[in-house]
């Protein structure tokens, strides 16, 4: 951890005003301080936004919920309304990290957490995301946890969030305030693919502050699930995760949402895969067909090719569970 200045912002506007090159907002701190200790991030100043009044969970006029950016992950997951109306989201949050970290981490920070790629974390190794132009250590290196979709020849890192996978499936909207005022970003547009600028994770601009995440009214509460597959039973990042939401008409799928985690630089969705489900009977064969659409461009590396088959099986399992699920159940 290098030298930095610390100040606490009294308002969102003040925070945005203090944002300058080399300055970072800190709220939960669980990812930022970790990366600062690892010398991966070296902000010259921290603006503490953790006491801004952005921690509420409120109803929206459209019948959805507004999750404050500074609401803690645990408070979000255990919120009665979230559990009832968006069980997939609650389940996703509780599948991530540990109870302690969920008590600290905020919703806004969760969106902006950085990859867990080994090379990103180890400053003695090449990493285009950490040090543009230094190369990608994972390509040709140790890449068991890396991307099978949407990667580039510059970067095969994955986004580590569970929450974001559910938010992608739910088509949440991210509310941002910044030097140019307020704006809304559809969730699918928030995270980028690495391309030739892997150092940039999101479309946020310097000084942008996430203030809230809006959940639309449709929560797929009756038929949804979040399935996370990892190397131990808890407290590990996903090898593959699936957020699945269905609206059923008897045994027929009326609408479908499907997002994958642990496989790409962002939560992975594909309208064509969802279209392959809509209007079709909820059968394993149909689910598998949809999975294959979603995974049609998947490409494995030396250690992670298993993720392609694993993802397909996980999708079938998650959709099966979602289709079977009757009524909202607490996670």
């Amino acid at each position: 951890m290098r030298s930095f200045t610390y100040s606490r912002a009294g308002s969102a506007a003040e925070a945005v005003g203090r944002a300058a090159a080399g300055t970072a907002f800190v709220a939960g701190g669980t990812n930022l301080l970790d990366l600062m200790k690892a010398d991966v991030l070296r902000p010259e100043g921290l603006v503490d936004i953790s006491r801004l009044p952005l921690d509420r969970i409120e109803e929206t006029a459209e019948g959805g919920l507004r999750l404050g950016a500074l609401a803690r992950n645990a408070d979000t997951a255990y919120d009665e309304r979230v559990q009832t109306r968006y069980p997939m989201l609650s389940k996703a949050i509780l599948a991530g990290a540990s109870a302690q970290l969920r008590n600290m981490a905020t919703n806004g920070g969760n969106l902006l957490q950085r990859t867990r790629c080994y090379y990103f974390y180890d400053t003695a190794t090449p990493c285009n995301k950490r040090q543009p132009g230094s190369g990608c250590g994972a390509i040709g290196g140790v890449n068991r946890i890396h991307a099978i979709l949407g990667a580039s020849d510059q970067c095969i890192a994955v986004h580590p969030s569970d929450l974001c996978v559910a938010l992608a499936a739910l088509e949440a909207v991210v509310r941002v305030t910044g030097p140019d005022g307020e704006r809304s970003i559809p969730f699918a547009e928030l995270h980028r693919l690495p391309g030739d600028r892997p150092e940039i994770d999101t479309v946020l601009r310097p000084g942008d502050l996430v203030t809230a995440i809006d959940l639309p009214a449709r929560g797929f509460a009756e038929h949804s699930t979040y399935l996370k597959i990892r190397d131990r039973a808890s407290y590990a990042f996903a090898l593959v995760s699936v957020a699945a939401g269905l609206e059923m008409d008897g045994d027929t799928v009326r609408d479908a949402r499907l997002a994958l985690g642990g496989v790409a630089h962002k939560p992975w969705r594909d309208p064509e895969a969802e279209a392959a489900l809509i209007g079709k009977p909820a059968t394993p064969d149909r689910f598998r067909a949809a999975a294959r659409v979603l995974l049609r461009d998947a490409k494995g590396h030396e250690h992670n090719s298993f993720k392609i088959e694993l993802a397909e099986r996980a999708i079938v399992r998650a959709l099966t569970e979602a289709a079977e699920r009757k009524g909202a159940s607490r996670p």
């Binding site: 080994y118 180890d122 250590g137 040709g140 290196g141 131990r232 039973a233 808890s234 407290y235 590990a236």
Partner: peptide, 21 residues
């Protein structure tokens, strides 16, 4: 990573020891 001769998962997050669950 045999190209680097370096253990890459050198922390408790990625070197997995059993957890309670």
């Amino acid at each position: 990573d045999h190209r680097l001769g370096r253990v890459m998962n050198h922390d408790y997050a990625e070197y997995h020891v059993p957890v309670n669950a």
